[in-house]
Design a protein around this nucleic acid. Structure first.
Lengths: 198, 198
DNA sequence: AGCGAGGGAGAACGTTCGGTCTCCTTGCTA
DNA sequence: TAGCAAGGAGACCGAACGTTCTCCCTCGCT
């Protein structure tokens, strides 16, 4: 059908089939988990043949890694754009928290992609597990940095507190009433923000 | 070898092979996840034959349900014994939080069995998913009850706050330094306890 | 003494898994 | 115009999946 464009060899950007594959994998892995979906499901839903998958990825694991990379980029850009509109470091934290709450409230929310993934890959040596750790480290450092700029001392403790609230909110967001979860989360973050020293 | 005792038909309690099976399944499911381990692994490690598994359970799913039931009973008795030694409702909350922290610090801690399980069973209609919801509902009600007795108004919000901290601590406990996670968690619970009205 | 349940041993079921293979067509580019 | 990469279609692989089956042995009970 409409496959006349953008299927060039090495001149243009990424191939169309690859993007369809990665997009489908991202959607299905997030919605249904990783181990419970086979490559057959993904290639069928992406309308791609088996050979095409293995032409772009070395195997399922690389597809999983690419999925987490998509999620990572998405969250980083989401955090970046949330920070842009804020006036002060404290407001940046509020904006990031609001963005998280928006995600929890949005339809199709299935929890944190990274917490879900690490539940399926408990081995710390596994590349998927390490990708999760890397993402979490970045997020903790980002929040802690913001809190330090906002004058919190020690910022480490406050940063861990905010991340703990976020983890809890993301975990419960698809198991409880999302509205209540968001209210509790935002109130908790505001509480951390309002207590400079303990 | 020592299988002379306790293998009686219907007179005594549960069979020895069944307990070995359930114990092994509990250990492996918690440590490695559910979808990624097959029944072959479990029957081999439990030193039980294939037929024995299907004599006691209708299938793998029932074994998973039994595993979650073991986890549920364990946590309920852990909470009950923590509450016994406390003098006031607020101290009961502290004791429960301390018990949770002990779990996070203990070797082999792999996060919350229920949060891990629900990550692999996203379908809300699935029995495993519903077992997780039931356990979480009990825990939330228990904590909210305790906080209400301690004089919190509204206790609902405080209960959700404590559960959110617990979820975050359980999720991060096997991804960060458990000592720091516990410190942040206990401080957070103490913070909720110290603020009767917002 | 004999019945029946619990369990061990293991073959076999059909399905699905992740992964590799060949053959053919399309369309760009050198 | 010839070459070549991308992609489609589909056969095929060995392994693992969950499940069912038969056969036999060993107890505890009546």
């Amino acid at each position: 059908m409409s496959q006349g464009t953008a299927k060039r060899g090495r001149s243009g950007g990424v191939s169309e089939a690859r993007e369809r594959l990665l997009g489908t994998a991202t959607k299905i892995f997030y919605a249904e988990g990783i181990h419970s979906v086979g490559v057959d499901r993904i290639i069928a839903e992406a309308q791609v043949t088996r050979a095409t998958l293995y032409r772009h990825f070395t195997g399922k694991e690389e597809l999983v890694l690419a999925y987490l990379d998509v999620a990572d980029r998405g969250i980083r850009s989401q955090v970046a754009s949330a920070r842009e509109g804020a006036g002060s470091p404290a407001d940046e934290v509020r904006a990031v928290a609001a963005a998280i709450a928006d995600g929890i409230r949005s339809p199709g929310f299935r929890g944190c992609a990274f917490l879900n993934a690490v539940a399926e890959y408990p081995d710390p040596a596994h590349p998927v597990h390490q990708a999760v750790l890397a993402h979490r480290q970045w997020f903790l450092e980002t929040v802690t940095d913001l809190l330090a700029q906002a004058g919190h001392e020690p910022a480490d403790e406050a940063g861990r507190h905010v991340v703990m609230l976020r983890d809890g909110a993301m975990a419960a967001g698809c198991l409880f009433d999302p509205e209540l979860v968001c209210a509790t989360f935002l109130r908790g973050v505001e509480g951390v923000l309002s207590r400079r020293a303990e």
